[in-house]
Design a protein around this nucleic acid. Structure first.
Lengths: 133, 133
DNA sequence: ATAGGTGCAAACAGTTTGCATGTAT
DNA sequence: ATACATGCAAACTGTTTGCACCTAT
C-alpha cells in the first residue's frame, strides 16, 4: 500500500526543478540534477516527471516546434515567453484582460486559453545589439 | 537553376491539403493523398511539407500534446480553437487587438505571439446539451 | 542530358518500457 | 522481506536523411 517512496533521485529531481524555477525539458532536469547525483538516468527523470504531472505538482508546457517542458504547477494563471535565441522558456506575470470568448464563432464554448509570446530575452537581446557592425 | 518541379506526388499532396481544408498531420495528408496516388511515401510528404512551409504556402500549427499540423498559410494573421471533444482544430477569424508586448519583462523583445483557445466546438457543444437528463 | 524528386530503408531525437538489481519501509 | 524505484538497453513514434533510381524540363 505504500506509494511514492522518498529516494535520492526523486529529491534531486525536485530540487533541480525548484532551483531553476522555469519550465524545463527532461534533459535539462537531468543535467541539473546530475550535478548533485551523478549517474542519474534519463528514464528515471521521465518516470518521475510522469508521476509529478499526474499528481498535479508539475504542469506540462509546450511551445511550437520545441519539446515538452515541465514547470511547477499550482501557480496562478499565467503565460509564457519563448526566447528564440537561447531557446529558454520564461514565465510571464500576467494574463492580458481580454474577452477571448468574443473571438469564437457562434455556438462554441470557451474552456481555456493559452498564449505564447516569442522573441528575444533580455540577455540575448543585449548580446545582439553590438553597438553597430 | 530550375527549382520546384511539378510532380504528381506534389500535386496529390497539394490537392489533399486543399480538399480537406483544415490543419492536418503529415499522416493525415498521406492517407488522403494516397487515395489518388497509391504508393506515395511518407518521406515525400514530409519533404514537400518542409518546402511548402519554407516557401510560405503552408504554416505549422501545434497544440499541446498533439503532433504538428499543417494548414494553408498566406491567410491573414489568425489563431486557433481546439475542440477538446472531437480533437479538431478550427481557425479563428480575428486576432484580439491587445498590446502583448506590455506583458514582457524589461529588455525582452517581442517577435510574435500565438494564441490557442480550447473548449467545445458548436457541434460537440450541441450534443452535450441534452435538454435535461 | 541533367538537376531535382521519389521510394525505401536506415538514422535520429524524444519518450517509454522490460528486466534484473537495488533500496526504502 | 518485499513492493516499489532505478539504471540500462531495447522498443516505439514521429521526422529526417542517404542512396540508387526515376522524371520533368
Amino acid at each position: 500500500m505504500s506509494q511514492d517512496r522518498k529516494t535520492k533521485q526523486r529529491d534531486a529531481i525536485l530540487a533541480a526543478i525548484e532551483r531553476l524555477g522555469r519550465p524545463l525539458k527532461a534533459q535539462e532536469i537531468l543535467d541539473e540534477a546530475s550535478g548533485e547525483l551523478p549517474g542519474l538516468g534519463l528514464a528515471t527523470v521521465y518516470r518521475n516527471i510522469r508521476r509529478l504531472v499526474e499528481s498535479g505538482w508539475l504542469a506540462e508546457v509546450e511551445v511550437m516546434g520545441e519539446g515538452k517542458r515541465y514547470e511547477r504547477a499550482g501557480k496562478h494563471h499565467h503565460h509564457h515567453f519563448h526566447c528564440q535565441d537561447c531557446d529558454r522558456l520564461f514565465e510571464l506575470e500576467d494574463c492580458p484582460d481580454v474577452d477571448f470568448a468574443s473571438l469564437l464563432p457562434e455556438g462554441f464554448r470557451l474552456a481555456a486559453h493559452e498564449l505564447v509570446l516569442t522573441g528575444s530575452c533580455a540577455s540575448c537581446e543585449r548580446q545582439s545589439l553590438p553597438g553597430q557592425s
